[in-house]
Design a binder for these strands. Structure first.
Lengths: 206, 206
DNA sequence: TAGATTGTTAATCGATTAACAATC
DNA sequence: TAGATTGTTAATCGATTAACAATC
């Protein structure tokens, strides 16, 4: 009798619930219902209740969910009730934009170091960071014990840099390069190729 | 007896197949198999064959698929055998990076106009574009008959700009703002919130 | 109390996989 | 021909929905 594992597909929805709940909280709301949250995120009320019930009983019959309480629970479940250090590799336009992005801070992440392999960029200041040489990646990541990286290098370099990251102990990669990465078991990758996003919509356009 | 509609989940995988196939083509390969493609993208061979069989018989027993031929078919299916004009709204760091990104050209998209509401930015050159006033959005989009937009404005402005876009005839929105958009039926949205990507992985980290 | 909404069960629906005849 | 690989069917597996007793 093994403990039933929570499906990836449920985990994938939780950050979206969390984002919507924090939005409600910022608007001064105190409670919500599976119905209301579902409308907000485009998911059925039944499914939201089912998803949450995987982790405990967070609501009250008749009144719904305390937003603050549910936010706390989701942050715990997703392990973003702490701050994760993240490194960014590749200081082209995209890496540059990410290094200066202010949206990670209150959602569980903090960029701690940024890297590039271009001698012209190494040593340069970007946001509050000094660009380090990609060759120092392994040492720097091991020393700081970082588990998460954002990959913003050109497609041609992405797999090789990913290998270095994994070798250095990184276990989660947010990949902006338009290419599939092959990584060993125990390493997670999320893809953010804008063209894939666009191509998922054109099928439905006339 | 209605024609069975192709599930969204299959459509969602096709751009990933297409990207992998073009990568193989760039490496000079002429044919591939469902087995090989599956390993490349992390999907079972059976599923790839099943997905493709929705649209026709593209392979040959014994030899597999012609890469060039399959690329052509997928481009047709996804309607990226043409070039779609895309507008970008919001010329912060992210919009800026996108406006200068060279990766759309050969994958079916062309940025045609960029917008911002900041008087300091309007009229400025970014990449090969002159930043236009967001107030002109509706007129400009209608005139150019654009169907696709990338949304790079702050979260607080995103819903309102999305409304303007839809009103002007946009039917597909690639949303970089960390917020859920409510859009009418017949309008598609894809989300690219990096924090959601990160939060989908932390659950699995110790 | 009456009304609202949860958590959960059972039923339904849909997606994935395994297997193999067909055939290049 | 022998080997490889497709397209497809049937079986399995998993996810979603509907419905409702429990209860705030």
């Amino acid at each position: 009798m093994t403990k039933r594992e929570t499906p990836d597909i449920i985990i994938g929805r939780l950050p979206v619930y969390l984002r919507a709940l924090r939005h409600m909280e910022a608007q001064g709301k105190g409670t919500t219902s599976s119905q209301e949250l579902g409308e907000q995120v485009g998911i059925s009320a039944a499914q939201i209740r089912k998803d949450l019930s995987q982790f405990g009983e967070f609501g009250k019959q008749g009144t719904g969910y305390s937003i603050a309480f549910l936010i706390g629970k989701l942050r715990e479940i997703l392990k973003v009730d702490r701050v994760w250090d993240v490194v960014v590799v590749g200081m082209g336009d995209m890496g540059h934009a990410i290094a200066r992005y202010q949206g990670f801070a209150d959602r569980g992440f903090r960029i701690s170091q940024v890297f590039d392999s271009d001698p012209a960029k190494i040593g340069e200041r970007i946001g509050s960071f000094v660009v380090q040489d990609t060759r120092e990646l392994g040492t720097a990541i091991r020393k700081a014990d970082v588990r998460i990286a954002m990959l913003c290098v050109p497609a041609a370099a992405a797999q090789q840099v990913a290998n270095q990251l994994v070798e250095a102990g990184v276990r989660a990669i947010l990949n902006y390069a338009p290419i599939n990465l092959n990584v060993p078991k125990g390493v997670w990758v999320q893809y953010l190729d804008p063209t894939v996003g666009l191509q998922r919509m054109t099928y439905y356009l006339e």
